[in-house]
Design a protein around this nucleic acid. Structure first.
Length: 331
DNA sequence: AAGAAATTCAACCGCCACGAC
DNA sequence: AGTCGTGGCGGTTGAATTTCT
C-alpha cells in the first residue's frame, strides 16, 4: 500500500544512497536523460524504486542545485511567500532557483522549532547577544532575533489600524528590509499610501496589509535577482543561481543531458553582474536623491529598464505582483 | 573527554491528480 | 466510468551531526 508498482517488483534498497549508487544514477541520467522514472532503476542498475531515484536526483544530484546556507534575501523571500501561500513548498521553491522544496521545508520547520522554543522573547537588543563567546552561537541568535523581530513587527503591523500602518510604513524602514533594500509600489499602491498619509482619519478600503505583503514580496524578489546578478561572474552553465556557498556536485564537469526545467523565468536573465550592479547602485542613489525616501521606490515612476540595457525585472511584466502571485492558483 | 540533548536534513510514506487505456 | 501507472507534493521520521553540560 502506498508503494508504487515499481517498488514492489523486486527488493528495493532503502536508506541513504551510497556514492556508487549516486554515480550510477548520474551516469544514467547524463547519458539518457530522464523520462519514465519507473524504468530508471532497472536501466541504471539500481536496486531502488523509481520514486527514490527521482527524489535523489531532484533533491541532491541535479546539477543546478544550490547548496549551503540560505541568504538573508532568500530567508525574506521565503517568509514573504510563506505568508502568501502557506506550506506550499514546491511553489515557494519555484521562486528560489536551485533550492528544493524539501530544503525549504526543512529550513522552515527548523525555524519554527526555534521560534516555538523562544515564543515571546523577540530580542532586538544586540548588546545582550554580543556577550556570548561563540561566534556561531551569536550568529544563530542574531538570525533568530532578526526573524523574531520581523515576524513580531509584521504581526503588530497587520493588526494596526490603517493610519498607524502608514506611520509604520514610512518611519520604520527596518521592517522587512535591510539598509540597502528597496520597496516597490505600483501606482495603485502609491495612491493608497498617499491617501493614508494625507488623511489617516479618512479610512480607506485599501488593504494595507496585503499591499505591504505584496511590496515585501517584490522587494525580496528584487533583492534576490540583484544577488543573482552579482554572482553571475562565471561562464559555467551552472553559474545561474549559485552563490559562493555552492558546493560542486559530484558531477561538476557534467553537461546536463537536457534543459533543466525551471518555473522561474528569471533564470533567463543573464547580465554582467558587476556592470549591472554598478548601474543599479547609481540608479538607486538617483532614486534616493529624487524621492527623499531611501527605502521606498514607487514602481511605475521608473518605467524604463532598471540598470541600463538589462532589465532586472522585465518591464513588459512589470506589474509583476500579479505575475508572481498568479503562479499560485489558490490566490 | 564523554554523554546527553538538540538540530539538521536526506529519505520515506501516504495521498492526490492526471493521463492512458 | 473505472482502473492502473506514474509524477508530484506535503508531512513525517530517524540517522548523522553538532552543540551543550
Amino acid at each position: 500500500m502506498g508503494h508504487h508498482s515499481c517498488c514492489n517488483q523486486q527488493k528495493v534498497k532503502r536508506g541513504l544512497w551510497s556514492p556508487e549508487e549516486d554515480e550510477k544514477l548520474i551516469r544514467f541520467i547524463t547519458t539518457h536523460g530522464y523520462g519514465c522514472w519507473s524504468e530508471v532503476p532497472e536501466k541504471a542498475g539500481l536496486q531502488r524504486c523509481g520514486k527514490s531515484c527521482r527524489l535523489r536526483w531532484i533533491n541532491y544530484l541535479r546539477p543546478d542545485i544550490r547548496r549551503g546556507r540560505f541568504t538573508p534575501e532568500e530567508e525574506k523571500l521565503i517568509i514573504s511567500l510563506h505568508g502568501a501561500v502557506g506550506n506550499r513548498w514546491a511553489h515557494i521553491a519555484s521562486h528560489l532557483p536551485g533550492r528544493t522544496d524539501n530544503e525549504i521545508k526543512n529550513y522552515w520547520n527548523s525555524w519554527i522549532k526555534k521560534k516555538l522554543k523562544k515564543p515571546s522573547k523577540p530580542s532586538t537588543n544586540t548588546t545582550s547577544i554580543i556577550d556570548h563567546n561563540s561566534q556561531q552561537q551569536q550568529h544563530q541568535r542574531l538570525q533568530l532575533a532578526n526573524y523574531n523581530t520581523i515576524t513580531s513587527q509584521q504581526d503588530i503591523f497587520f493588526t494596526q489600524d490603517i493610519g498607524t500602518k502608514s506611520q509604520v510604513l514610512l518611519q520604520d524602514s527596518t521592517l522587512f528590509n535591510s539598509p540597502n533594500q528597496l520597496f516597490f509600489f505600483d501606482s495603485g499602491s502609491l495612491d493608497s499610501i498617499t491617501n493614508i498619509i494625507n488623511d489617516a482619519t479618512n479610512r480607506s478600503t485599501t488593504n494595507s496589509a496585503s499591499l505591504f505583503q505584496e511590496s515585501s514580496v517584490l522587494n525580496s524578489e528584487f533583492c534576490w535577482q540583484v544577488e543573482q546578478q552579482q554572482q553571475q561572474v562565471q561562464t559555467s552553465p551552472y553559474a545561474i543561481g549559485m552563490d559562493s556557498n555552492y558546493l560542486p556536485p559530484l558531477i561538476e564537469s557534467m553537461v546536463p543531458p537536457m534543459e533543466i526545467p525551471s518555473s522561474n523565468s528569471n533564470n533567463n536573465i543573464m547580465v554582467d553582474g558587476q556592470e549591472n550592479n554598478n548601474q543599479l547602485n547609481e540608479w538607486s542613489s538617483q532614486v534616493e536623491t529624487q524621492q527623499c525616501c531611501p527605502s521606498y521606490l514607487f514602481w511605475d515612476q521608473e518605467n524604463g529598464s532598471i540598470g541600463g540595457d538589462h532589465d532586472i525585472i522585465d518591464p513588459s511584466t512589470s506589474n509583476n505582483m500579479g505575475q508572481i502571485l498568479s503562479s499560485f492558483p489558490s490566490l
